[in-house]
Amino acid sequence: MTAEREVRFLEVRNARKSFASGNRQIEVLKGIELTVDSGKLTMLRGRSGSGKTTLLNLMGGLDRPTAGEVWFRNRPLHQWGDKQLTVVRRREIGFIFQSFALLPLLTAWENVQLSLRMAGIPRTDWQARTEKCLDLVGLTKRMFHRPLELSGGEQQRVAIAKAIAHRPLLLLADEPTAELDSRMAAHIISVFKDVVEAEGIAICMTTHDTALWGAADVVYQMVDGRIVPA
């Protein structure tokens, strides 16, 4: 009898993704093989249009592959329905998008607490967890400022605090430094490293910024929907 294949923390197996365009099917992902390990910072590098965001969406259960498999903690996300995927996203996965996705009328503190409320975290835990997350990203002195009172880098740090507030096991970040200058981008990566160490989670982010690649534990290069040698 053949032994079952070991499943990593997050594993993508021969994933393909196609989208309809008129009478044609456009294949965006073409047989992706990838693993992400807990406690590491993984980067997907590549030009715009290489398929990075589509792959990240599959890994986070925001979309399903046309073919192939996506396993998260020994569970087949590619087979799950919308209700199951919603539960795992709320409890175990955090997301950071290119836009900061902060509510402009709420302070940094209130934005983070809103994510705790939506995740169903008991109210008794809100204050301590909010303080810890904002301190971790270096915003202790700015936690009661609204987004428009914060710099771009500070807003992104609020987004990170918000994304990790419910203690996810996996954080997925789509071009989180795209709107920042090189100094602030490097600072955000430093924050990511601190989060990995302090929270013991896995972070997988997309980027086309060559200056950031050296900070990653693992780098995958994407070209035209495929993983190629870095």
Rank of each mutant, 00 (worst) to 15 (best):
M1Q: 02
T2F: 06
V7G: 01
V7Q: 13
R8K: 15
R8E: 14
R13E: 12
R16T: 04
K17A: 05
A20V: 14
N23T: 09
E27F: 00
V28T: 12
V28K: 04
I32L: 07
T35N: 10
D37N: 14
D37C: 01
S38C: 07
K40L: 02
K40G: 00
L44D: 00
K52D: 06
K52M: 01
L55M: 03
L58W: 04
M59S: 04
M59R: 02
D63P: 03
D63K: 08
D63V: 11
P65K: 11
T66C: 04
G68K: 14
G68M: 10
E69C: 05
E69T: 07
W71P: 05
F72M: 05
P76M: 07
H78P: 00
Q79F: 00
Q79R: 15
K83H: 07
L85W: 09
L85Q: 04
R89A: 09
R90F: 11
R90I: 06
G94M: 12
G94E: 04
F95S: 07
F97A: 06
L102G: 10
L105P: 00
T107P: 07
Q113E: 15
S115G: 11
A119Q: 09
G120P: 08
P122G: 10
P122R: 06
R123Y: 01
T124V: 03
W126A: 00
Q127P: 00
A128K: 13
A128I: 07
R129K: 08
L136A: 07
L139G: 09
F144Q: 13
F144H: 15
P147Y: 11
E149P: 08
L150I: 05
H166V: 04
P168R: 08
P168H: 13
L170C: 14
L170P: 14
L172H: 11
A173D: 09
D174L: 10
D174H: 05
T177K: 13
L180T: 12
M184R: 13
H187Y: 05
V191E: 01
F192T: 03
K193G: 03
V195D: 04
V196S: 09
V196K: 07
V196I: 15
E197G: 04
E199D: 03
G200P: 12
A202F: 08
C204P: 14
T206Q: 08
H208C: 10
D209S: 12
T210C: 01
A211N: 08
L212D: 10
V218C: 11
Q221Y: 01
D224N: 12
R226D: 02
V228L: 09
